[in-house]
Structure formats: structure tokens, C-alpha cells
Amino acid sequence: MPEGPEIRRAADRIEAVLAGRVIESINFGLPRLQRYAKILRGQRVQALETRGKALLTHFEHDWTIYSHNQLYGVWRIVARDCLPETGRSLRIALHTKTHSALLYSASDISVWPTPEINQHPFLSRIGPDILAPDLHWREVAARLASPEFRRRRLEALYLDQRFLAGIGNYLRAEILFAAALNPVRNAASLGRGERGALARATLAVSRRSYATAGITLPPRLAKRLVSQGFRREQRRFFVFGRDGQPCYRCGGEIARAETGGRRLYWCPGCQPAL
């Protein structure tokens, strides 16, 4: 499933061709949404907002399309009416004079009056967006110490969208590695310095992934691996998907476990259990 950085980058691409432009034609692939086409046709797109893994397309006259890619949804930007050949189901088609923004395969889509969008069942319960410009590491640290979250294991807490929105499996692994914390520890066990380090790593790794299209390694290390001939998939992460391979820091073997039906990766040398 795409995580916060991927959804924000998709929003950037869509915003580049839709923001400030009139939607001349709109089609919904889900019958329950087709009645909104008449309302939104001819309206101007104001902005694309992301909240975690949800994308909000804001129109003038106070209407918003909510969409969540879930596991298989994908956006495509093409020249007007040049639909790509695909076996996917087209769910939304937004056409300006020059471009088309197309959402395939997703089904978690709804249209809301903008003033009511915060009442959406998903948006009403999620925490701060990890890529929100005004999110400070001190707020993340405070949430780690709060009664609501402090008793949770980090491995579960860092997938809970109520804690922070936009973190998924790869960011969880990479953030905990960057903070040198074992996934089985709970937030209550962290000292003040550890909470601060984890909070800073949470923002730094998430923002780096957004800036680099999914690479969480520091630029110097990533550049060195490029010079050594590593393929992109081999130089994206410290631990995620690298079980059995040597850690880039300590040389130890990356471990993997299944927890809650999700893959979990860590370095036992760099992230020792206490």
C-alpha cells in the first residue's frame, strides 16, 4: 500500500495539472457517485491536500472528493482523453482542457461538502499527517509520552494511523532503525532522549522519503551504493526487505518476523532488545 510520501507525491503531480483549472468533464466509475458529476462539472479545482494515505481534491463552491488508494489504487496523469491501455477499473476521471487525472482500482471514494470533510469516518480519527509542514518533533515526542499511546509497542504504534497518519510498513522499519530502537519496546520504556531521537527520526525519514521518491538512506550512503553498482531497490532502505543481508552500519544480518500479518524488519546489532 502506498504510504504518506507516495500519496503526497501523487498529489503534487495531480495538483500540477488540475489546481486553478476548470474541470470540463468528470466521470465516476462507481454508480453511487455518478450524481456528483453534474455538481462538480465546470468547477475549478482549488488544491490537493493529503492527510496520511488519503487524498482530498478540493473544488470551489465548497466540495471535496475524498479518495484512498487502499492496496491497489493508482493515479495516472495523461494528456486530455488519452486513456492508457490497462485492465484496471477506472474510478474517477477528471478532465481539464489539456489534461486528464485518472484514478484506477480504488473503491474508497466519496464526495463531501468541504465544511463537513472532517466528519469523514477515517479523517475524524487519524493523528497528525507526518508530512504536515507545521508538525514539530516535539509534538511527536509528546504523543509518544501521552496516556493514549505510551503503553503500546513501537511495532504496533507505528502502524496506528491514530498516532500519526501516513506511516506504513516500510517507514515503520526505517524510522525505528534510524532511532536505534527495537520494535518490541513500548513507548513508556523510552527515556526522554530516546523519545526525542525517535520523534526527530520520524519526521526526518518520512520527509527524506518524500523528497527522494522513496529512498530512506542518507544521501551520502545512497550515492556510495550507486557508485558500487547497486540497483535502486538495493539502495532504498537500511532494513526493509533486506532480511538475511548485511546491515549497512554494523555488518550484522538483518532480521525479519511476521507480526499482525505484516512483515517486520530490524537489525539486532543496531536495535538491541533490552
Rank of each mutant, 00 (worst) to 15 (best):
A204N: 00
N182T: 03
E155T: 13
R207P: 02
A187H: 02
L176G: 02
R125Y: 00
G127D: 01
A199F: 09
A179M: 03
L123N: 13
Q161P: 12
G196L: 09
R162S: 13
N182W: 07
V184D: 15
S146V: 04
I130L: 13
A204H: 00
N186G: 05
A201V: 10
I117V: 15
E148L: 07
S146D: 14
R172P: 13
L198Y: 06
T202H: 04
D129S: 11
G191K: 03
R195D: 06
I130D: 11
Y170A: 14
A187D: 02
A141K: 14
P128S: 04
H120W: 06
A141L: 04
R200M: 11
R143Q: 08
T114D: 05
E194P: 07
R153P: 06
P147K: 12
L181Y: 02
E155F: 12
R195K: 09
A132Y: 01
R150F: 10
L123Y: 05
L131I: 04
Q119Y: 06
S146L: 05
R172C: 07
P128R: 05
E155P: 01
R200A: 14
T202D: 03
S124F: 00
E155A: 15
G127W: 00
G193E: 15
R172H: 06
L154G: 11
N169W: 04
N118G: 15
E139H: 11
R192Q: 14
Q119N: 14
A188T: 02
G166P: 07
L181E: 02
S206R: 09
G196M: 09
L154S: 07
L154T: 07
R200Q: 15
F177I: 01
E139K: 09
R150D: 07
S146N: 10
L181F: 05
N186F: 04
E148S: 14
G168P: 14
V205P: 00
L159C: 09
A156E: 10
A156D: 14
E116K: 07
A197I: 03
P121V: 08
L135S: 06
